[in-house]
Design a protein around this nucleic acid. Structure first.
Lengths: 136, 136
DNA sequence: CCGTATCCCCGGGGATACTG
DNA sequence: CAGTATCCCCGGGGATACGG
């Protein structure tokens, strides 16, 4: 176990890196917004507003701005009447695609997992409510 | 473009899956907590408290409970004096390892990216402050 | 050591209305 | 359509103290 301190150093760096990611990606709607833009390639403000269920225009505007500052998305004003605005991932933003895909796959898997486990615990339909606040 | 509706259906499902993931993983500290447990394999309450800089015992307790309800982590009380509690990933929780690793890699990449872009914009050291609230 | 309970404050964030 | 401004409320979450 003499290698423990070295392992710990490594883990600390890994933890810091995760924190760095979360500084940019946490926030109630960021990941979902990015997913919308990612899957549709180019997406307008009002479209994202629909994609991300529950978000307000105020929050969408705010989070888009933050993502833009962090160079993850690019904002383009189109010469339409009335004006529309298009959002797309930057090259750097596109490096998140893997993560988005993983999260998508995991979401599907998780849904199955939870439903499966619940029916193991009890057959009562009411027990479905146990799944922790999955519909805030 | 007659395939557009089909594509849209697919994207909607993908978006829903991401939302499902985020229902469980969002929350100010969840991902970082999971990372700590993931990298150290088994981790005690007080250790996680140290790993996740800034978190309070109240929040750690709360988020751990939620993760446990969602079957991502397993809680074990050890017969030590005084009592200690150990957390580890469940099998289902381990399926997040890929995502954690990706987030770690991306964090490192992102840090380089932002510093790089900033020095392109300006040589002034003060411009470092532009990086959006990366140290809340 | 591992939490829970209590107090309390601030700001996240919704609803609505307005401008370019 | 895209976004900003204003108002306002509720609960997230910190600090502290205590119990098992």
């Amino acid at each position: 176990m003499s290698c423990q301190p070295i392992k710990t150093e490594k883990h600390k760096k890994e933890m810091m890196a995760v924190q760095d990611s979360m500084d940019v990606l946490s926030g109630k709607w960021k990941i979902t917004i990015i997913s919308s833009i990612c899957y549709y390639n180019k997406r307008r403000f009002s479209d994202i507003l629909n994609d991300v269920s529950g978000i307000s225009n105020k929050m969408l505007s705010k989070e888009l701005k933050e993502l833009e500052i962090n160079k993850l998305i690019k904002r383009t004003v189109l010469n339409t009447q009335p004006i529309t605005v298009q959002y797309e991932l930057t090259e750097h933003g596109k490096s998140l695609q893997t993560i988005i895909n993983n999260l998508t796959d995991w979401g599907i898997k998780h849904r199955k997992e939870i439903i499966g486990n619940n029916s193991e615990i009890s057959d009562h339909p009411e027990s479905q409510n146990i799944l922790a606040e999955s519909n805030i």
